[in-house]
């Protein structure tokens, strides 16, 4: 049922993973997943709860041990290490945000630039300004503790903090989780604008429709395997995708009848 491989030849490849597998004990959460993100692309991975989406991102980032190959920006990693990946320009905004809650918003952002600061790139003042321009709310609340922020503001802070490292590829894990529709809309607007600034995006979402709308290319992950993939617009109209999310299929009607 797969779409033709290598559908998007435009642009150079930024991230290429091949046959990536992750096992928790005997249970395989991700098996032989392969995907590609081109320079300047927004690629989304959609799929039901427990399909292994978060596992996929964690393995690429090096937070989880994995088998397979991760090729980021032309450098092959058989086992990625978080610190190395951050240094190479990969950022992850995790599902749980993982903010430094008892520290100020400004300190949270500053720590996003930790590795660049260590390498001697001391231009974080300018990056900080860009982040505040992108998220004026964070500027208003820069002195507050991260713990006092609302859900939407926390998500903004998590994204802003990741941007402080000037990533070339930003991976977002369920950025709309638990957010009201208006805030979700705002987050997706920002995702689009990031691409215009040259940041490639790998987006994991349950909110399939919104994700497919902003993305160039999409993968559907089911029980740890890439079930299908193709240009986002094509998948958005695919009846199987809708079925996977609502179970409104004719097949289902038949099953009821039988």
């Amino acid at each position: 049922m797969n779409m033709p491989m290598e559908p998007c030849n435009a642009g150079t490849t930024l991230l290429q993973i091949d046959n990536l597998s992750v096992a928790y004990g005997k249970v395989e959460a991700l098996s032989n997943a392969s995907l590609r993100v081109g320079e300047g692309q927004i690629v989304t991975v959609i799929g039901p709860n427990g399909a292994g989406k978060t596992t996929l991102l964690s393995a690429i980032m090096g937070v989880l041990g994995s088998r397979g190959q991760v090729n980021f920006d032309g450098t092959l990693q058989s086992v990625p290490e978080v610190e190395v990946m951050v240094g190479r320009g990969l950022g992850l905004v995790p599902e749980k945000r993982e903010l430094f809650t008892s520290m100020s918003v400004a300190d949270n952002l500053l720590l996003g630039a930790f590795q660049r600061h260590r390498r001697g790139e001391r231009d974080h003042g300018q990056t900080l300004k860009q982040v505040y321009d992108l998220f004026p709310r964070l500027w208003e609340r820069r002195e507050q503790l991260a713990a006092t922020l609302s859900g939407g503001e926390r998500q903004m802070l998590a994204v802003g903090r990741a941007l402080m490292a000037k990533p070339r590829l930003l991976m977002l894990d369920e950025p709309s989780l638990g957010l009201a529709p208006l805030v979700t809309r705002e987050i997706f607007r920002i995702i689009s604008s990031l691409r215009e600034q040259g940041v490639s995006i790998l987006l994991v979402e349950q909110n399939a429709r919104a994700a497919l709308r902003v993305a160039d290319y999409a993968y559907v992950l089911e029980t740890g395997q890439i079930a299908m993939h193709g240009p986002a617009r094509q998948l958005a109209d695919d009846p199987r995708v809708i079925e996977a999310y609502l179970g409104l299929s004719s097949k289902h009607q038949e099953m009821l009848a039988s």
Binding site: V63, V82, M103, Q115, A165
Partner: peptide
């Protein structure tokens, strides 16, 4: 930061 949130700190490359 490491004390507050170990995973968050790792993701910052600390």
């Amino acid at each position: 930061a490491t004390a507050v949130n170990r995973m968050g700190a790792r993701l910052m490359g600390i």
